[in-house]
Simulated scan of single mutants.
Amino acid sequence: MAIEIKAINKSYGDKKVVDNVSVTIPKGAITSFIGPNGAGKSTLLAIISRLLSADSGDVFLNGQTLKQQKSADIAKQLAILKQSNHINLRLTVEDLVAFGRFPYSKGNLTKIDRTFIDNAIAYMGLDELRHQYIENLSGGQRQRAYIAMTLAQDTDYILLDEPLNNLDMKHSVQIMKVLRQLVTELNKTVVIVIHDINFASCYSDYIIAMKDGKLVQQGCVADMMRSDILQEIYNMPIPIQEIEQQRIAIYFRN
Rank of each mutant, 00 (worst) to 15 (best):
N9T: 05
G13L: 01
D14N: 15
V18M: 09
N20W: 00
V21P: 00
P26F: 11
K27W: 10
S32W: 09
F33S: 01
G35I: 12
G35A: 09
G38E: 04
G40C: 08
G40F: 09
T43V: 03
L44Y: 11
A46D: 11
I47R: 02
S49E: 12
R50A: 07
L51S: 11
T65N: 08
L66D: 10
L66M: 11
K67F: 09
K76A: 03
Q77I: 06
Q77T: 12
A79Y: 06
A79G: 11
I80M: 14
N88R: 05
L89V: 02
R90G: 04
E94A: 05
A98C: 09
F99W: 03
Y104V: 00
N108C: 13
L109A: 00
D113G: 03
T115G: 12
T115M: 11
D118C: 12
D118K: 15
D118G: 09
A120K: 02
A120I: 04
A120T: 04
A120N: 02
A122Y: 10
Y123S: 03
M124Q: 06
G125T: 13
G125Q: 05
D127L: 05
Y133A: 00
I134G: 06
N136M: 05
S138W: 00
R144A: 04
T150C: 11
A152G: 11
D154W: 02
D156W: 05
L159M: 14
L160M: 13
L164N: 08
N166A: 15
M169C: 03
V173M: 10
Q174Y: 08
Q174L: 07
R180M: 13
Q181D: 14
V183T: 12
V191T: 06
I194L: 13
D212H: 13
L215R: 02
Q217C: 10
G219V: 13
A222K: 15
R226A: 13
L230V: 03
L230Y: 04
M236L: 15
P239Q: 06
P239F: 13
Q245W: 07
Q245H: 14
Q246V: 06
I248G: 00
